[in-house]
Nucleic acid binder design. Structure first.
Lengths: 152, 152
DNA sequence: AGGCTCAGGTCGATCGCATCCACGGAGAGT
DNA sequence: ACTCTCCGTGGATGCGATCGACCTGAGCCT
């Protein structure tokens, strides 16, 4: 993980469809060298996936909610997590410090579907209560921040 | 936005680096046809970007926080937003219903940097108070959900 | 019905890119 | 200095991206 790897990661965070030839020009190496470096970043777990970022409204997911979850005293955290994982509406799941053990980001098509999701969450074994906030609009999301230093 | 467009979007949400030839095989069209459709999805704003998803720890962003913002009575929401936009640590910004006008997701390298960010947020004109929750771990993030119906 | 027009495809050709392989050079250890 | 290893370069080759020409069916006007 040197400065060139970091540049490659930054370039691919900005545009995942850049060709190896283009990446090579940007970092000043040959295409095969870049190919190998990116391959190692992928297999080493630094690059997890390449995703198209889609306007949620365009695919019928116009409602975004952020939901805090309080576990009850009987809860097995792994089981609760597994139950969340089965709910495709939950796009992100953070395990939090504080009274609320989890913070979920969910996207659904309608308020009615959100209601059903909340009911399902409250019925889930181990869940004591939920607290839902509705996002009126997403100003931006997953903006890649410029990289300075490195690790590993 | 027909069923084929939806398949293309779903395929690219799963893997943004699929070739047009591969996409064409998957949806049963020719490569040029797919190329044109994807081009229209991009210029029509359905596909916003292609991004590599990176392990945050690997690039020195090991601390994730979710921060609620309460505006004061003098606040100009646009100005507040603009101030947030200048802070690269803020990866996502949602405008929320409720007492807290904004919910921010921020990533920084250390707790010390988080402290500095929170101080800066509290000093921002229009911000009355902040409430920060720290994510102990990210179970998953931006998982693409399977698409059923369409819009537009 | 006949024929125009247009959207959206296919096909074929060309050129650049991905990818494989053999080779080379710098740095560390002995 | 020798050699091993890592990491890179350059050349070759086959596939994919992309352009242009042409095809076809739907909708519509006359």
């Amino acid at each position: 993980m040197d400065a060139i790897d970091l540049s490659l990661v930054e370039l691919l965070r900005g545009n995942a469809r850049l060709s190896y030839a283009e990446l090579a020009r940007q970092v000043g190496l040959s295409a095969p060298a870049v190919h190998e470096r990116v391959g190692k970043l992928e297999s080493g777990g630094v690059i997890r996936a390449y995703r198209a970022e889609v306007e949620p409204e365009a695919i019928g997911l116009g409602v975004t909610a952020l939901i805090g979850i309080v576990e009850d005293s009987t809860a097995d955290t792994d089981d609760v997590l597994e139950a969340f994982r089965q709910m495709p509406e939950i796009e992100s799941c953070y395990f939090m410090a504080g009274v609320e053990s989890f913070l979920l980001k969910a996207r659904v098509g309608t308020i009615a579907e959100l209601e059903q999701l909340i009911v399902r969450l409250n019925r889930t074994a181990g869940v004591a209560s939920t607290r839902t906030g509705i996002a009126l609009s997403t100003k931006w999301e997953n903006r890649p921040q410029p990289l300075e230093s490195a690790a590993s």
